[in-house]
Design a protein around this nucleic acid. Structure first.
Lengths: 211, 211
DNA sequence: GTCTATAGGATGATAGAC
DNA sequence: GTCTATCATCCTATAGAC
């Protein structure tokens, strides 16, 4: 393989590939600091390109954030659809229908921490005209998917979403840094974890260095 | 009553009163735009004082935000304690113990929209050293209160918190603006509302002008 | 206790070369 | 397709008067 990496003076690349690369970087940055806290420069550095180029590609910072939200939503629904199709050798004991599968799919998304957190940041910026509209539309899209395609009842969707928002919050607050030092944090996380494996994976690196 | 109001050249006032006034204003502003999105100038305007004075009172913007978070936590726990004491003529039919009371208390806090939303913004900024530490400590304080003082089981706390995070999210995303135009939004809100009265109160003014 | 003026430091966006 | 240079704006924080 050629020794080309991201920090070199920018290897030429097809627009679409570079776009995806920047979107991934932006997802991470927006996930950590939110829309206002993230800078286009931080995104650029994370993607290994120049700041003006990031702006050039998406027009404005806001457009970039909207693109991140849209991409995150697509992935979320995509993962749900795959889980729903579920032809794989899941739980052949015919346990609680789609719940398990979708919950697990959601937990897997936690691996890309920025994805769910960018969404979360978008969700609580409802008072912003553009971002708010995008966030509401996305949230409702998920709601409809669960209700119609996954066949949840209104109460089931409600419970599923509540669970999801708590999970997002726990990841965002980095509750895992207190896992080893605070019994309450440990109990909370142990209770909240859907599939321990995936969740711990997502939290890896958040724990405090030592006890 | 004297015709003194907030936009006059700043009537002299005891420090503590002005501090509370600024904290209330800051809570509203941080609730809408989050830590990074809010400016000390916006807080100052909302409080009817000058921007440098806001900074002077709290030292830094970050210190102001931490003060807002601490105050919000205090109010939250205060409301919970009152609800728990619950000597009032609540549900004398001895229905589901503290759950109802605490849920209602939480719903009432929604009236001060900025309060819960400022907390929410703090919660998802866990990667910020100072804010994250404050947020985690606060969240765990609530957890312990529910677990120890309110006597919830680990599962009950978990469910209660999940419900709360969903509520916060729905307020933050302003789902109510779609209440009259989107069936999904309506169903979601109808299902999620704890005590319809309080919640609708909190959402008042969020709905779209017309259908 | 509170303000005006302003320094100093980002940051988003544009212009234009390669 | 991608960068360097740079402008204009905004924003936190300080200095100092009243």
């Amino acid at each position: 393989m050629s020794s080309v990496n991201e920090q070199a003076p920018a290897t030429r690349m097809k627009a679409e590939d570079r776009r995806e690369l920047v979107l991934a970087a932006a997802t991470a940055v927006f996930g950590e600091r939110g829309y206002f806290g993230a800078t286009t420069d931080a995104v650029a550095k994370a993607a290994g390109v120049s700041q003006p180029y990031v702006v050039r590609m998406f027009g404005t910072k806001e457009a970039l954030f909207l693109a991140v939200l849209t991409r995150a939503l697509d992935r979320l629904l995509g993962a749900f659809r795959v889980a729903l199709a579920g032809d794989g050798p899941a739980h052949p004991d015919g346990s609680a229908a789609p719940h398990r599968g979708l919950g697990a799919a959601y937990a897997e998304l936690l691996a890309d921490r920025g994805l769910l957190l960018s969404l979360m940041h978008g969700f609580i910026l409802g008072s912003d005209t553009e971002i708010g509209a995008c966030a509401r539309a996305g949230f409702l899209q998920v709601y409809r998917f669960l209700r119609e395609d996954a066949g949840f009842s209104a109460d089931e969707v409600h419970e599923f979403l509540a669970e999801g928002m708590l999970l997002n919050t726990l990841v965002g607050i980095r509750m895992a840094v207190d896992y080893d030092t605070d019994p309450a944090a440990r109990e909370l996380l142990d209770t909240a974890l859907p599939t321990k494996a995936e969740f711990l994976l997502a939290l890896e690196g958040q724990r405090k260095p030592q006890a």
